[in-house]
């Protein structure tokens, strides 16, 4: 697994507080009723500025992906890295590392569940796992 460490800033503090508890937060606009990705500053549909953090289901499906070939290190065999674009049930897309993903299971629409892992020196970060 090759997740790089991420630290919080003021904006992202609520997101990472929730991620440490295993909950996924997205941005939600009460005025438009639309959800946006975690980094959104205005609503991705209406451009309204009334975004607030709101808990999402943590479920979604695969939209696209890439596989980065691994390089053998020491005695360890090369391990490929699979990165997916996952569309959450609420609509926003997340770019997620898919650890231990079965390459044969990569397909548009494959059900994905968001989990959280904590790399050394990092907040808890979302990753995707195939379900079903």
């Amino acid at each position: 697994m090759s997740l790089a460490p991420v630290v919080r800033d003021d904006f992202s503090a609520p997101f990472f507080e929730a991620s440490a508890e295993g909950r996924l937060l997205l941005r939600f606009s009460p005025s438009s009723g639309a959800w946006s990705e975690p980094s959104a500053m205005v609503c991705s549909v209406s451009q309204a500025a009334d975004l607030e953090w709101r808990e999402a289901s943590g479920r979604g499906h695969l939209v696209s992906w890439t596989i980065k070939p691994g390089r053998p290190r020491d005695d360890q065999p090369a391990q490929d890295t699979v990165i997916g674009i996952v569309e959450t049930e609420e609509g926003p897309w997340l770019t997620l590392l898919l650890p231990d993903a079965d390459v044969a299971a990569l397909a548009v629409g494959a059900a994905v569940e968001v989990r959280f892992v904590q790399p050394e020196g990092s907040e808890h970060l979302p990753v995707g796992r195939f379900v079903g």
């Binding site: 997740l3 790089a4 991420v6 919080r8 980094s39 696209s64 980065k68 990165i83």
Partner: peptide
């Protein structure tokens, strides 16, 4: 690597080849 804007990068979508690859 600070904040939620870094999440795609942290997940490994860093350089142009992998970003065009998903497209």
């Amino acid at each position: 690597m600070e904040g939620v804007g870094s999440l795609p990068f942290a997940a490994g979508l860093k350089a142009a080849p992998e970003r065009y690859a998903v497209a």
